[in-house]
Structure formats: structure tokens, C-alpha cells
Design a protein around this nucleic acid. Sequence first.
RNA 1: GCCGGGGUAGCUCAGCCGGUAGAGCGCCGGGCUGUUAACCCGGUGGUCGGGGGUUCGAGUCCCCUCCCCGGCGCCA
Length: 435
Amino acid sequence: MLCGGAIEVRKVFTEDTVGKEVTVRGWVHRVFKVGGKVFAWVRDPTGVVQVVFEKSSLPEGTWPQVKKLTRESSLEVRGVVREDPRAPGGREVLAKTLKVYGFSPPFPIRGKEEIEFLLDIRHLWLRSRRMTAIMKIKHTILKALREWLLREGWWEVTPPILTGSAVEGGATLFEVKYFDKKAYLSQSAQLYLEVLIYSLGKVWSLTPSFRAEKSRTRRHLSEYWHLEIEGAWYDMEDTMKVAEEMVAYAVRKVLEERREELEFLGRDVSKLEPALETPYPKITYDEAIERLKAKGFNIEWGDDLGADEERALTQDFEKPFFVTHFPKHIKAFYMKPDPKRPEVVLGYDLLAPEGYGEIIGGSQREDDYDKLLQRIKEEGLNPKDYEWYLDLRKYGTVPHSGFGLGVERLVMWVAGLDHIRDATPFPRWRGRIYP
RNA sequence: GCCGGGGUAGCUCAGCCGGUAGAGCGCCGGGCUGUUAACCCGGUGGUCGGGGGUUCGAGUCCCCUCCCCGGCGCCA
């Protein structure tokens, strides 16, 4: 029972309501006016039910309001549930009373609008069944990721969003005014998480991250939700295990709890099922290059993997897989070189299949003071900005590793979306900041 | 930043070799007692993204500019 004595629309169908009086509330999803009857499909967060209005069943004075009902008008109806094969879902509500909360002017979305228009009225588009399904899936993914981490004993911490310096390079930072100084919106909590492992051991955070890249791809947002973990005494392999177990758990939860939404989105769930099984395959960067050469790519050892290359690699796997041991020069300064092969780092990406590509990037961190300082200098960064970070290697350094997961990337793959913007209600990229 | 596509009615689009704009849907009015993207009849609807130029005349040709979409690089 909802507040005010109403029931969820779904319950009209799932509970023993036939012949009984119920109150439903929601928005008019569609309305048909036929002769002396009006059919309104009423939508709430749980479903859609057909409400039938007949003049003879309604109190004096209500009929003119019924005639004025429009799409997206909000209302409350008390009526009797009855079975009728002509009603969607086999049941409908014959209205006895109507309370209109707000009439709606003509709703601008009817189903064949262009993306540009839809993005401008995103605040209305979010009412669609498609966006609702995606947001429910995202909810379940976030819940599952949290559940897994809490169950495994990871501490949730709260790193800052306003930061004084870059994590990796300065070109992609959003600059903000900070009193009489400059500050930046965080693009990763990693450095702060590294601080916190010295007291808590295993930590994680879920925060927005910001990238000012002028990206124009279907896999980039300027603002996205970033799940990051960092563990003391975790080596690269240890965090890869965390990554695959956590992802597998999230996929399992979505398959258990969001079946209906996946179906509505047309997602082929058989493509997700292989991801339930861990461990995930692992290939080295060297092997990736070999595979790509065999596929006819013009690529040499030392080149970074581009979008086409990544997509081609995902064709070889039916579940997420790791690519490990990248050349040092294409990765961030904080990654620890492989002691056995100093030209590569102890870093990895987790790529989702079906062309989706990278959803996680992780590494073991450089834990030696001198080597880290040298890498900072090599990158042209100012060691002064990283003094506190370098201190971590001075005061009782410890081997440690971690990764960052792009929540919207994970949602995109699980839900089978063709653009990351739909994995978040109010996407920000390039110039888009409205609504 | 680079490459490609686009901006005409509220929406989706058409508009030829330059002659001051059309359709469908929506909306409004009327009709219809079971609609499922309802249907039928009538009506309504435009600074053709912005600026400049060529021309007797520009949605159409030329120049500049703004915005949007797709792709690349970068990344999660």
C-alpha cells in the first residue's frame, strides 16, 4: 500500500484484485477517446494499467474533466478491477472517481523524435519506459557492487572532488575558481585512496569523476560515476580477482532482479551469462599485439590500442577479459614496472565483450620513493604538487594495487546500450550541460 | 583538435535548373459506446540556425559564423 491508500499499478495484475475497488495513481501514458468512453493507460513506476471512464459510472460533474485528459496528465482514480481480454494485460479499472492533480499540455514526445530534440527535453524523455528500465538496471548494478565490497570487508571512504592537482596530465581537467586560487574537479580518487590504505587497508569510493576531454565517442562522458578500490598488500593479480568477482556478481544480480527490464531493452541475456563464470581470460599486451597482427592490423609493439583494435580483440571472447602488462610509456606514471621486464608495467584493463571494450583500468602502484619521483619528473609533472603523495612512499611504504571502474561503461554493456549517454540520466559531454 | 553528416511548422521530413514554402503527425472544432501508434470530416500552423554577398528576385548560389549528430585520438 502506498501513502494515501493507493496501490502500485503492477499489483492490479499480480494480486487478487478482480471485482475489488482499488485506487491507482500515476500519469496518463496514452489516452483514447472513443464515442462515450475514454480509455487512459495509467503509468506509475511499476507498470501500466488501462482505466476506463464511462459517464454513467462517474459522479456528476466529472465527465468534462475526463474529456480534457491528455498524455502525461497526473491523476488518481478509484475504481473496480475487472477482467477483460480487450485490456492490455487482461485487466482494467472501471473508474468511479477521478482526481486530476495536473493536466498536461501536448507532450512533445510521441516516438519518432530525433536524438538532438530528445536530448534537449531529456527531463521529459526520462519518463519513457526505456530510460526507466535503464535507470533500474543501473540501480541494481550500483547496489550489487556495494554489496560485494561491503561483504568482502572493504571500507567505504569519501575522497575530495575539489583537488589541487592532476592525477594524470593536466589537459583534461575542469578548472574551477577556489577562493583566490585555482582548483580542479577530480578525475580520479586514486591518489587519495592510496593515502587511506595506510590506515584502513582496503578502501573504496564511489564518486563522480570529471574529464574535460573533447571526446566525441559513444563511450565517453565528461562526468561519470567512478568506482575505485585500493588495497594495501594487494598485488596486480589480487585486484584482478576483485575486479572479476565484483563484475560477475553485478551481472548475476541484474540477471536475477532486472530480467524484465533487460527484455524490454531487447538485451540478449545469453550474451551476459558467460560473464557469471570466473576467472576471466587474461592475455598480455604482447599477445594482444600478436592477435591484432594476425587479424591484419598495422600495429607494432609499443603502440596504444585504439578503439578499432580494442573492438577487434573483444570478438575473440564471449565474456570480459583482461589485457595486462602494457608498455610503460603508454601508461600513467604511478604504475609499477614489472621487475622481470621493466619495459612493461603491472597494469591491466578489463574489456567487456561484444565490442564494448574497457570498463576497468587498474594497476599495481609504484611503491619506491626514488622511482616514483623519477617517473613524476619524466612526465614533466611538478614534484611539488605530489609531495604528499610521495610522502606515502617515505613513511612506511607498502606494495599496493587498485583499479577504477566506469559505472556507466558497465551499465552500457550489461544493458546492451549503443551509447553511454543513456547510462546516466543527465549526461554531460563536450558542450552539453542542459538540462 | 581532425574528418564526415545536418539545422525548413510543435515533431518527422520534402522542397528540381534561383521565381517570396508543402506533406504526414500533433493541436483546435465536430462525429463515433472497446480504444491498443484509433478512425472519419473541417480548421490551425513558418524570422527556412545567424550575418553578409551575388541577383530584378535566394530555403536554393558564394563567403563568414553559431549550434547539433556520427567517427577518430584520449580514457573508465
